[in-house]
Design a protein around this nucleic acid. Sequence first.
DNA 1: TCTGGGGTCCTAGGACCC
DNA 2: TCTGGGGTCCTAGGACCC
Length: 402
Amino acid sequence: MPAPRNVIAHLDMDAFYASVELLRYPELRGRAVVIGGGPAHRPVERVDPVTHALTRSFATLAGYAGRGVITTATYEARALGVHSAMGMMKAAALAPDAVVLPVDFDAYRHHSRLFKAAVREIAPRIEDRGIDEIYIDLSEVPAPAGIRVLAQSIKDAVRSATGLGCSIGLAANKLLAKIASDLDKPDGLTVIGDGDLERRIWPLPARRINGIGPKSAARLAEMQIRTIGELAHAGRDALVARFGKAQGEWMHDAAHGRDTREVVTHSEPKSISRETTFDRDLSATRDRDALSQIFTGLCNGVGEDLLRKGYAGRTIGVKLRYDNFVTVTRDRTIAMPTQDAAVIRRAAGSCLKRVALERRIRLLGVRVGALIPADAVATFSNTPARNDATPSLFDTEPAPDP
DNA sequence: TCTGGGGTCCTAGGACCC
DNA sequence: TCTGGGGTCCTAGGACCC
C-alpha cells in the first residue's frame, strides 16, 4: 500500500495578458510590449487597397499621456526595468519604444476558462486564485511516472488548449508550491522536496512569502531580517513581540515551510464593487454634475453585476481617494439584501454625506458586501438591524446627490 | 510623470445582548 | 455610584494579492 502523499501544484501563467495579446499580434513577438491604459491605444489596422495586405500600427509608450499603470509587461519589457503596477509615464521614460496595448479583459477571461478547463481534465481539484493562477491538489491523481511527468503533462495540456506557456511549482503545501512556481519563470517546472528548504528557500528574500508585502518586509528589515532563512532563525517570541501573536506565529511557521491550508475548490463572493479613477481630479462643488453622473453609473454597474451573478447584499459602501492619495471608506448596513441600483444609490448617497468633500477627489467607488445568493433573499431572516436606514415603500424622498 | 481595478482577510473599538 | 464578562454585529482602516 502506497504511503499517503500530499502533492500541491501552483500554476502561474507566464505574462498572461501580454501573452494573450501576442496570440493576436504575433508580429510583436520578441518586442517589448506593455498592457495598460484605455481603448485609446488600440492598434490601427489598414488594408492596402491594391495588395489587400493587412498592416497594423501600434502605439508606443513614448506617445502615451495620462494616468494608468502597467498591468503586464513582456519579458523583453521587464528586461528594461518595466514591471506591473508601474505608472505608465514612468515606464515611458524607461522604455519609450515599447508597444502599448489596452487591456481586454474579455479576451483574458476567455483564455482563463480555457486553461482551467484543460487542467481540470487531468486534475479536478483546483483552487482559483484569480484570472491567471490556480492551485492544484495532485494528491489523489495517479502519477505512475512520477509527479514531474504529471506536471509536465499539465503544462502540455495548457499549451495545446491555449497556445500559452505557464510555470508550475510542486511541493507538499500551497506556500512552498507558490514560491516554487516563481523560481524558474517563464516555462518553469520546479519541485521543492522535503530536503530543499534550507538550500533553495532560505536564501530567498522574505518578501517571496505570499502574505509578506512591502510593509512587513520593511519592518523585518528593521530587525535585520531580509531572507526567509533569517526569518526562520528569528525566534518565535521576537516575531510575536513585533507583529502580534497571529502574524508573528504565522511568519515563523511560513519560514520553516509549514502550511496546513487546504486547496479550496469552491468559494462564494463576499463583495462586489466598482470604482473609477478620473482623468483629472474633480471638485465636489465645481464638478458636481459630472461626479453625480459617475456615481450613478457606478451604482448601476454594481447593480448589474449583482443581477448577472445572482447575488444581493446588505452592506452598501463608498470609497473616495483624494488628490493627496488618502483613501476613506464609509458603509451602512440595511435591513434587507438588495440588488436594486436605486436602493444601492440611496444608501451609498447617505454614506457620501459622511465624508469630507473639501479636497479634490481622484477616485470614487461603490461596494456591496454581506452577499447572499439572490434566490435566498425571499427567505432572508432579518435580524433587527441597528442603525437601519432602509427606505420604506413610503419613502418618497429623492435620492441624495453626492 | 507619481501611484488601476477587483477582491480577501485582519484588527480594533463601540454598541448591544444575555 | 470604582471594578463582570463573553459573544456578535457594525464600522473604518490597512495590508496584501492578482
